[in-house]
């Protein structure tokens, strides 16, 4: 497996271009799965989402999660892009992509990455609405989701 590609950045990224580049580099793998997380509009009330992170730790934590995924599934390549800063509804917050010889491995590894990025990568979201600003609370279901990976 090639080293996981990990990017933590403020700038917007082009999901299509990223996926095409990833898929062509992953080449002969056979299966590529990708997931993008977008800012939800929360029924039209959300004005912006501000994402804070812990710069000295973020890439290290994502690296550790990606390495664990590579131990569990035979991946040929992994990509994680996660943004920080102020984003508006519809913008992509993050994407993961996995490449493997068979789709099941690529799907499972992508889900594993998402589950761990949710509650083990040092990001915090603050939601801004006309009514004010509020930190987004972690969900018990996000923590429970880790349980299925043993």
């Amino acid at each position: 497996m090639t080293a996981p590609l990990i990017r933590v950045e403020a700038a917007a990224f082009d999901q299509g271009a990223e996926l095409n580049r990833f898929a062509s580099a992953a080449g002969a793998a056979g299966a590529v799965v990708s997931f993008s997380g977008l800012v939800r509009d929360e029924g039209g009330i959300l004005e912006a989402l501000e994402i804070e992170h812990y710069p000295a730790m973020t890439a290290l934590a994502i690296q550790a999660i990606a390495e664990e995924a590579a131990r569990r599934w035979s991946l040929t390549a992994t990509l994680v892009i996660h943004r920080f800063g102020r984003l508006v509804p519809g913008e992509a917050i993050m994407m993961v992509a996995t490449a493997a010889r068979h789709r099941r491995e690529a799907f499972e590894a992508a889900e594993f990455l998402m589950d761990y990025l949710k509650s083990r990568a040092p990001f915090w979201k603050k939601a801004f609405t006309a009514g004010g600003a509020e930190w987004v609370a972690a969900k018990a279901s996000d923590e429970e989701a880790l349980g299925r990976w043993g």
Binding site: G37, Y54, A56, M57, L60, A61, H82, I93, M94, M114, L117, K118, S119, R120, A121, P122, F123, W124, K125, W135, V136, A137, A138, D142, E143
Partner: peptide, 26 residues
Amino acid sequence: DQELADFDAPLAGVREVAFFPPMTGG
């Protein structure tokens, strides 16, 4: 030092301690 730990963990040799709420990535 940039690795998740427990509250009963020893501080000997530690240079950086970070406190934060449960993470909400993804």
